[in-house]
């Protein structure tokens, strides 16, 4: 049951997006979020939707992967759309001649929010599908590097993230094992009241935590044995480099984003 959880859903193929420096992608992603929430007019949304389709196309990741990424968020999108539909004040919007409490403004906000969420999810999927978790943490480390001058632990943060990602499957496996062991001794995790079920989790969490600490200890010794001394003086197998491809990519994206802002100002 727990095996189904996927994290860092990297899709290892070759594409223009895959080749970009993770830093470029992270920055474009952040910019994309800002623009998505700034856009106001239908035209700018049309441009953004077009941009998102372009992303999907050049990532060369199958469209069904993106749809799979949207599925878990579907209920949230529907829920917010319904709330917006009914709870926004404004002119009454009759449906088949009957007034059921929907407003024109509500309908507009609902559609806008739904589009925004879908675009956001697709953009983040495009980022994680085309960037390996290692590259992603590398990119974050490099981006936060300037902050290390004022004492921000950028390398440590990136190392923690990549180790956390690495141990997710191991700990999931462990959890599965503990659940089975406890079930074999008559524990029940899915009957009784919510309170009872929550209490039943304790005998699962305690061994999980103890084993996680033991693993952490082992890992620390193994890392020390392999000469880990922190971020200083460390080189990388694959140095991330800002190349001409990145420049071209970044410029193209900037033009699109500038276009969206211009459209908003003009209309």
């Amino acid at each position: 049951m727990l095996k189904d959880i996927t994290l860092g859903q990297y899709f290892p193929i070759e594409s223009f997006l895959h080749k970009l420096d993770p830093r470029t992608k992270i920055l474009i992603f952040i910019l994309d979020i800002v623009i998505i929430f700034m856009a106001q007019t239908a035209v700018s949304y049309a441009v953004l939707i077009g941009f998102t389709f372009l992303l999907m196309l050049i990532s060369r990741v199958p469209v069904k992967m993106y749809i799979k990424g949207l599925k878990p968020i579907l209920y949230i999108i529907i829920f917010t759309a319904i709330l917006n539909l009914f709870l926004t004040d404004g002119r009454d919007l009759p449906v088949f001649g009957y007034s059921i409490g929907i407003t024109v403004e509500g309908a507009i906000v609902a559609v806008k929010m739904a589009v925004r969420l879908v675009l956001l999810i697709i953009a983040s999927s495009a980022l994680t599908y085309t960037t390996s978790p290692m590259a992603l943490t590398d990119g974050i480390e490099k981006l936060l590097k300037p902050l290390s001058r004022i004492g921000f632990p950028s390398h440590e943060l990136a190392m923690m993230m990549s180790i956390a990602i690495k141990f997710v499957p191991t700990l999931i496996e462990e959890t599965d094992k503990i659940i089975k062991a406890q079930k074999a001794r008559g524990a029940s995790f899915d009957t009784g009241s919510i309170f009872k079920r929550a209490k039943a989790l304790i005998p699962m969490l305690v061994p999980l935590f103890i084993s996680a600490f033991r693993r952490a200890d082992d890992l620390a010794i193994a890392m020390e044995s392999r000469c880990y001394t922190g971020g200083d003086g460390r080189t990388r197998l694959r140095e991330i480099k800002f190349t001409r491809t990145d420049l071209i990519g970044a410029l193209a994206f900037l033009v699109i984003f500038a276009g969206v802002i211009a459209i908003d100002i003009v209309f």
Binding site: G8, S132, P133, M134, S162, I163, I165, K166, R215, D218, L219, A222, M223, R226, C227, Y228, T229, G233, R234, T235, R236, L237, R238, E239
Partner: peptide, 23 residues
């Protein structure tokens, strides 16, 4: 408990990276 990275080759590279060896 002694494998650090989530790709085999990245893990093997861990020690040389720590030693500051060129890529």
């Amino acid at each position: 408990n002694q494998i650090v990275a989530n790709v085999v080759e990245e893990d093997v590279a861990f020690a040389p990276e720590n030693l500051g060896i060129p890529s």
